[in-house]
Design a protein around this nucleic acid. Structure first.
Lengths: 341, 341
DNA sequence: TCGATTGCTCGAATCGGTTCGACTGAACTT
DNA sequence: AAGTTCAGTCGAACCGATTCGAGCAATCGA
């Protein structure tokens, strides 16, 4: 069922069929109709590989996600969903690559072999081999997140530094003097994960600005870890009255630790952070948090990638977003734990 | 940077390079090394489109997911993750298609145009146009879920009927006599969504078996709806002491409605259902539920698809899984609401 | 009326691989 | 010594599209 078959059945040459389909040269209306009839009858569709081979582009973009074995956070899922959605609207297909370690076959396949016209890269570290690999390959790409050399590529990112500073200032305004930052896993932080690093900066910066005390801890990305982490925090730092966190996955466990310690939220203890809106709203009680607008960010990444593909020599562009904190039900005036009835 | 360039630089013909790479004919060790050196130096990778064109297969499978705009449940995400993972292990790439309505361009592109070697279809309805479309196209495919004519295709599915029956029996064993089934959205049920329909069967079957009373309601797939749905249920049916549900997304709202009505779980009211393990464990309190083993199911779907691709004429195969209920903290002995202190 | 333009179509080249048939020596049989 | 086998290599055909140059009529402008 190839173009030759269509040509034969409609009594024209293969090139005429091609022109009838693409409209790149005039074709007599009568001829066009005849060809279309045959196409409809046989339900013909041009072979994508042949077209890609000749045209030198695939109308497909690669989306590099964290390895599937590792559970994605709601924010990450939001990125994926919005990228997929935006790509579909632009009539682009998405090739998914769960990229893990160093020499990942899936990543290699996507980056090399002219499989895609461009790549969107998620979960970027401050020093990221994949960025180097992509730059070497010459393939257009856009990061959701960025490395320590922020001008070496086009990216969109969440401004974790500003967001965390806002969380701290919000808590400070409520009278909290001793705040803990619960970061993401020690491995991520050690690996130079950008959001963790920038959240630290925002945290320490805002503490200094308000002359407050703070402790920072790492916590694996799951509820279990969140619970034991907070239990340890409460025991070691009786003066704490609030937590700020970027560790979405650990939050349910943190809630549980507080409940278990008979600390009412927000009466006795405040907690705030950065999370996907749905997630924050569905918590019990709903979390006061900076709502990450994953939808917008993913769509913008696709947009920027399309621009890069059409003009690979244009200067790199950057987009940093910092949504305001949505007040819900987990932050309130500070009350020393020692004062509790 | 094509195979001709490699051939020229290593002083052999293009076919020899091809054979050196594929090993399909013997190549002198010395020649092979020379070719490999040139390939390494130039970082050459065969063009995927050219290969696909000649070989007639793409080493890529399509994964048709619900439209991205519609939030995926944790169970669905589990399917996606496990399919992606299993495909990566089998060195297959994944082309993602968020398929929505009738004539969806993304779905059409994936199904036609020889873009993929096979398709995995999620969220199948009892009557599903996409199944018909795929059957007509002749493309091998495997469903996660199945239609009303279960023998027209290969599929894997969760045995919602058995699971729901187990939930009801579990509640009955605890003494509950009046149980509500909270199904998924009215649109889905009306559209003939398989899991909803089968859950109904299991529910009514088990009720009859134990001689119990029950009510069934539909509920949109979000927390807000879950809350108002349960509020209405409690008001309209004071005799209810337990809920069984397959509506994962609505559960947080249902918890909230119960809390708001001052019904302790599981002291005053029991709730159980079908959910992803992580999700159930992270709820507060953790949900007694049949844990859906999304990981296994997705991997099996990939496995069956690979088999179908290699032998398209083999008979269809089916896999129905029904994991047992994991007892957590949301079901307990029935206590009439009228008896409450 | 003649040359130029325009509309429409065809044939051939091309994209970058894979694969088949054929050829050449060298090694092995008998 | 003649015939077989086999490792190793090459050239050409092929997969299914797109696109360029060219050709032929019909129409236009001068």
């Amino acid at each position: 069922m190839n173009i030759g078959e269509i040509a034969r059945r409609s009594g024209v040459s293969r090139s005429t069929v091609s022109y009838a389909l693409s409209g790149k040269r005039p074709v007599a209306e009568e001829t066009r109709r005849r060809i279309q009839a045959v196409i409809d009858e046989l339900d013909y569709r041009p072979n994508a590989a042949a077209r890609a081979l000749k045209e030198g582009r695939t109308r497909t973009i690669g989306l590099v996600i964290p390895p599937a074995s590792q559970r994605l956070t709601d924010v990450q899922l939001g990125f994926v969903a919005s990228v997929v959605d935006a790509a579909a609207r632009a009539d682009l297909d998405i090739l998914l690559s769960p990229s893990g370690g160093e020499h990942d076959r899936s990543f290699e396949r996507v980056v090399t072999g002219s499989r895609v016209d461009g790549v969107i890269l998620m979960e970027i570290r401050l020093e990221d081999d994949r960025v180097a690999r992509l730059r070497r390959s010459g393939l257009p790409f856009v990061g959701i997140g960025h490395t320590s050399r922020s001008d070496e590529m086009t990216w969109v990112d969440i401004d974790y530094e500003t967001l965390m500073a806002r969380c701290v200032r919000h808590l400070a305004d409520l009278g909290h003097r001793h705040i803990a930052l619960v970061n993401r896993s020690a491995e991520l932080v050690a690996a130079g994960y950008g959001p963790s690093h920038r959240a630290q900066l925002g945290f320490t910066g805002a503490l200094a600005e308000r002359g407050l005390q703070g402790v920072q801890v790492c916590c694996a990305d799951d509820a279990q870890a969140g619970r034991s982490c907070v239990e340890r925090l409460l025991a070691a730092h009786p003066e704490l009255t609030a937590i700020a966190t970027i560790n979405e996955a650990a939050i349910p466990g943190m809630y549980r630790a507080l409940t278990h310690a008979r600390l009412a939220v927000p009466g006795d203890f405040s907690i705030t952070g950065v999370a996907a809106r749905h997630w924050a709203e569905n918590l019990h009680p709903p979390l006061t948090a900076a709502d990450i607008l994953a939808d917008e960010l993913g769509a913008r990444a696709v947009e920027l990638l399309i621009q890069r593909i059409s003009d690979p020599d244009a200067p790199f562009r950057h987009l940093l977003v910092a949504p305001p904190i949505s007040l819900r039900e987990t932050t309130g005036p500070a009350r020393s734990r020692a004062d509790r009835p």
